[in-house]
């Protein structure tokens, strides 16, 4: 009565077969396409101040213009690059740290594990966003790179904890002992035998981290703690809020970047939903 894993269907195919994951992939894929094609599809340069200031939406400026006379739609299109870059880079860095710490902690036992676990638990309970704010307050250069580093330093703990417990569960499997009997090296056991069995968990933690990073970056920039000269959804919201865009009736200026953030977030969440189902078939509705 063993459930034979259906290996005929590849993970991507499985993801595609779930409507939520499929929708998520379409949304995220759409944003990636927009980011890549930004120079061609954006009607104007996002930094050009050649237009009338604070114009309402019109056929020339579908989403209006900013307080400096920049085209909001062009900013929205170019801004997707920042969010996706931060999501991919910080998500990747966070996942990398989480894998290193989680795998090391789970594979080694004894005091190294204890010390790393203590570090992880501490990092988990220290509130990340306030720490980000404090760190960014002291750092003189404000840029996307700094934000990515700060996000990575504060965001890895949850992933590390989840990966460690999975590692502990997998390393006690007989097939790991069995690989030692085949004469495999530690590195090969970790990367060839154990890691492939953790892919869905790693994918989930990457997407969770990417989403957290995208929202964190937008939050920091919205508060004005990033570099306000960079074109991103967060800074768009910062300028819109500072120019009282809502009160002056320029709802599109605030509405659009927020909706883009939310949509990207939903897309990632939907993919994660599908990954969850693959790694845990019980969740299948």
């Amino acid at each position: 009565m063993k459930t034979v894993i259906d290996s005929v269907l590849s993970p991507i195919g499985l993801l595609w077969s779930n409507w939520r994951a499929r929708l998520g992939m379409v949304i995220v894929g759409g944003f990636i396409l927009i980011a890549i094609l930004a120079p061609w599809i954006a009607p104007y340069s996002p930094t050009s101040q050649a237009f009338g200031r604070m114009l309402p939406p019109s056929s020339a400026h579908l989403l209006g213009t900013t307080q400096l006379g920049q085209d909001v739609l062009s900013q929205l299109i170019w801004g997707s690059r920042t969010s996706l870059l931060v999501g991919a880079a910080a998500g990747g860095l966070v996942t990398f740290i989480a894998i290193v710490i989680g795998l090391l902690s789970g594979f080694l036992q004894g005091w190294i594990d204890d010390a790393l676990m203590l570090l992880t638990n501490v990092a988990l309970v220290i509130p990340g966003f306030p720490l980000m704010i404090v760190l960014s307050a002291y750092i003189p250069v404000h840029g996307v790179g700094v934000i990515i580093v700060v996000l990575s330093v504060t965001g890895w703990a949850w992933g590390a904890r989840v990966l460690r417990s999975q590692m502990i569960s997998l390393r006690s499997r007989d097939y790991v002992a069995s690989a030692e009997f085949s004469g495999e090296s530690v590195l090969r056991i970790v990367f060839r035998e154990i890691l492939p069995n953790m892919t869905s968990l790693i994918a989930a933690s990457f997407m969770g981290a990417a989403m957290g990073a995208i929202l964190g970056e937008a939050g920091l920039e919205f508060l004005g703690f990033g570099n306000p000269q960079v074109v991103s959804w967060g800074t768009m919201l910062y300028w819109a809020e500072n120019s009282s865009a809502l009160i002056s009736g320029q709802w599109a200026w605030i509405f659009a970047p927020g909706l883009a953030l939310a949509l990207l977030g939903v897309g990632i969440a939907f993919i994660n939903f599908g990954v969850d189902i693959i790694s845990n078939p019980k969740l299948e509705a």
Partner: peptide
């Protein structure tokens, strides 16, 4: 929940402020 949980806090706040307040 998929939608509300991924909405940025500050954006939801801005929208609530605009619609329910302003």
């Amino acid at each position: 929940a998929n939608f509300t949980a991924t909405f940025p806090f500050f954006w939801t706040a801005l929208m609530a402020l605009y619609i329910l307040g302003f």
